[in-house]
């Protein structure tokens, strides 16, 4: 099959970019979206052109490295799917496919479809952890955790840090990402001592990094490849509010 792509090309963060049209031939429905881009890139290289830069690594939906805006939808048209797990069988060869990078001020374009998401690391560094030096831990069975809490913590912990939530959010807010971490750790007994400061510090970091504010439009959960629920945001807000009320 043959597809027409309209791909965002931009040489560097300071340079201007634009959409460039490419035809790619010999695409099979079993190819993943990234394999389709591989085909395009091999051809470009042989033609002496520079290939389209895009991030990827595991190619099985877990590392969170890939992420493209495909026809205006983060990670493309399939729900709960990363770009690397999206297959060409979902695309109509008659329609051109528009491929753009994630867009948010704290995610500057590095090159072409690649953006710098290190702002998400900064949010975690601000407090997204439990302080537990190696060697000091009590026996793992010292504190039983109700299965329901452990399961709920897991659901939030499944976030892969891809940034699709930011890309899709009309406000450019990473609230779902931040809330997923706050919820994961906040639901566990081990996470209690730092619960309030964690929530507050991560939220402050997020605001300081230039992200937009959350208005709970819910666009984020719809594109989230791991289906992180919107409710995690309430949990984060609850912690932040409690922290404020306690006058922290």
């Amino acid at each position: 099959m043959r597809y027409t792509l309209r791909v965002w090309r931009q040489r560097g963060p300071e340079e201007s970019g634009g959409l460039v049209d490419y035809d790619v031939d010999g695409i099979s429905p079993d190819m993943s979206f990234l394999e389709m881009l591989d085909v395009l890139n091999e051809r470009l290289v042989l033609d002496g052109e520079e290939p389209v830069a895009f991030d990827h690594d595991c190619r099985e939906g877990i590392c969170g490295m890939c992420g493209l805006m495909i026809d205006g939808v983060a990670h493309g048209p399939e729900r709960a799917t990363t770009t690397c797990q999206l297959h060409m069988r979902h695309f109509d060869p008659a329609e051109p496919i528009v491929v753009e990078p994630w867009r948010a001020a704290p995610f500057p374009v590095v090159r072409d479809l690649m953006v710098d998401r290190s702002a998400l690391d900064r949010i975690v560094e601000a407090g997204g952890y439990i302080s537990a030096p190696a060697g000091a831990a009590p026996d793992a069975h010292a504190v039983p955790i109700p299965k329901a809490d452990a399961d709920a913590a897991f659901t939030a912990a499944a976030c892969i840090g891809c940034g699709a939530c930011v890309a899709a959010c009309p406000n450019g807010s990473p609230m779902l990402f931040t809330a997923a971490k706050a919820t994961h750790l906040g639901l566990l007994p081990q996470g209690q001592p730092e619960r309030l400061s964690r929530a507050e510090d991560m939220l402050t970091a997020q605001d300081d990094l230039g992200f937009g504010g959350c208005t709970q439009t819910g666009e984020c959960t719809l594109v989230c490849p791991k289906g992180i629920p919107l409710e995690t945001i309430a949990t984060l807000n609850h912690d932040v509010l409690t922290a404020a009320l306690r006058g922290r």
Partner: peptide
Amino acid sequence: RARKARPVSYAHRPKVQGS
């Protein structure tokens, strides 16, 4: 803030998915 957080908008953006 939202406008500042996304200075470059998407060239192609279909109707939003949310409610």
